[in-house]
Computed example of a mutant assay.
Amino acid sequence: MDSENTALWLPARGKKFEVGPAPVPEPGDEEVVVRVRAVAVNFLDTLPGYAYRFVLPWVRFPMVIGTDVAGEVVAVGRNVSRLSVGERVLGHAVGVEKSRNRPAEGAFQHLVVLMQHLVAPIPGALAFEQAAVLPLALSTAATGLFQSDHLGLPLPTSVPTEKNSTVLVWGASTSVGINAVQLARSAGYRVVATASPRNHDWVRSVGAAEVVDYRSKTVAAELLQAIGGQPLAGTVAIGSGSLPPAVEVARRAKGTRKVASAHPDPVTRLRAWRARRKNVQVSAIWGASLKDNEVGPAIYTSFLPQALASNAYRAEPRATVVGHGLTDVPNALELLREGVSGEKLVVTI
């Protein structure tokens, strides 16, 4: 393992990032240390300083943030038998989570500690920068689809049994949405989705049976027609503005009136209260919560390695490399704030 470590530190709320030395981490029980080769950036990483008081009030500074990692295992802790030194992996870093809350587990550094059940080996043909697009988006989609406090669907398998029901993915061309489509199909569900017309073919290519333009004035009617006579197994609503129309479709379709929203904020909670009056259950997804239940290991340990190796699952969306080295991560975050579509911004390390 490297004898030195360097991290992109966030010194305090409202302060600018600083690149500097970091302790060389040691893996604890059921942990591994990964030499980071690529990271992806997410909107959670773009939080302005003051927002930490409301979104992540428990975070202690200085902190190393970031969630999406791809690299090589350089050390394994006790009770780790499924991963070995030198193995190429992707992983979900959870350093900013309340129960972890330590810089050693933030993605934006050369050596990062990962919980072994949130790490998956990747095939040799999958580049680190493309593998890095998966973790948070995959975790968020899996949380919404499979956790019991959300849709609670059966877990995905490499050879799924086809169900006679449909999952609606509103916002399928987002990074969370494109993973939700694939996971729902891997669980045996027919998928109906929304996306802008330029992304319809892409969304269909990963398994959606029908795709509707979310900006259409008749989007609810079109979705109900696409769902047809099958019962609705549940809905994943992704992005700002997705929840009201998703609730309306869930209210009018036959089947399960559950909507898992990947836009948790106070407005979502208000809309969830209003949805109950329409007999629709709305839940707010927090993607890292699968680290504490059976969904995390089911995805990263049991499902994903084989699915990636057999090409049954694709690392999507497309990675766009926008920098090299920790000093380029803040620039990537600025580009993300400006908006992206159908791609994930990645920095190689």
Rank of each mutant, 00 (worst) to 15 (best):
V322C: 01
A180W: 05
R78H: 13
L44W: 10
S341A: 14
H263G: 03
V94K: 01
T268R: 13
A180H: 11
P21K: 14
H200A: 14
V94E: 08
Y50L: 09
S139W: 02
H150G: 04
S240E: 15
Q230W: 10
A284R: 08
S302R: 15
R277V: 00
A319S: 14
V89M: 12
R88W: 08
P156E: 02
H110E: 15
V321H: 02
P154K: 07
V94S: 10
R215Y: 03
P330H: 05
H92D: 12
W273R: 13
G171W: 03
N79L: 02
E222H: 02
N79K: 12
A312P: 00
I299V: 14
S283F: 05
Q147K: 04
G49E: 08
E316T: 14
L345F: 09
L138D: 04
E31R: 13
Q130G: 12
A307I: 09
G124W: 01
D328K: 07
V80I: 12
D29M: 00
H92I: 01
N311G: 11
S240Y: 10
L232P: 04
R274V: 00
P48D: 13
A93P: 04
A246I: 00
A107E: 10
P330Q: 05
V64D: 06
G28C: 07
F146A: 07
V39M: 08
A172M: 12
E4T: 15
K258N: 09
S173D: 10
V55Q: 07
S196Y: 03
T327Y: 01
E294V: 12
A131C: 09
P317D: 06
R13Y: 02
L136P: 09
N5A: 06
N42P: 09
W170V: 01
Y52Q: 03
R271G: 12
L136R: 09
L336S: 14
N331R: 14
R277W: 12
S242D: 03
P266I: 08
L90P: 07
L224C: 05
N79E: 07
A319I: 12
L333F: 06
T67Q: 15
W170F: 09
A220E: 15
H200V: 09
G325C: 05
S216Y: 00
H110A: 09
R185G: 12
L155S: 08
Q182N: 13
V96I: 15
G188R: 11
P297S: 03
V159Y: 02
V73L: 02
L308Q: 09
V347W: 02
S3I: 14
A180I: 07
E97T: 14
H117C: 00
V80C: 08
P123I: 06
L270G: 11
R318Y: 01
D265R: 13
V181Q: 04
R13E: 14
M1I: 10
K291G: 00
A40M: 09
S242C: 04
V191S: 12
L183F: 06
V295N: 06
A288D: 10
R190N: 04
V169D: 04
G207V: 06
E316D: 06
W170T: 02
G296T: 06
Y300S: 04
G14V: 06
R37T: 02
S242F: 06
N164Y: 01
L270T: 08
E162I: 09
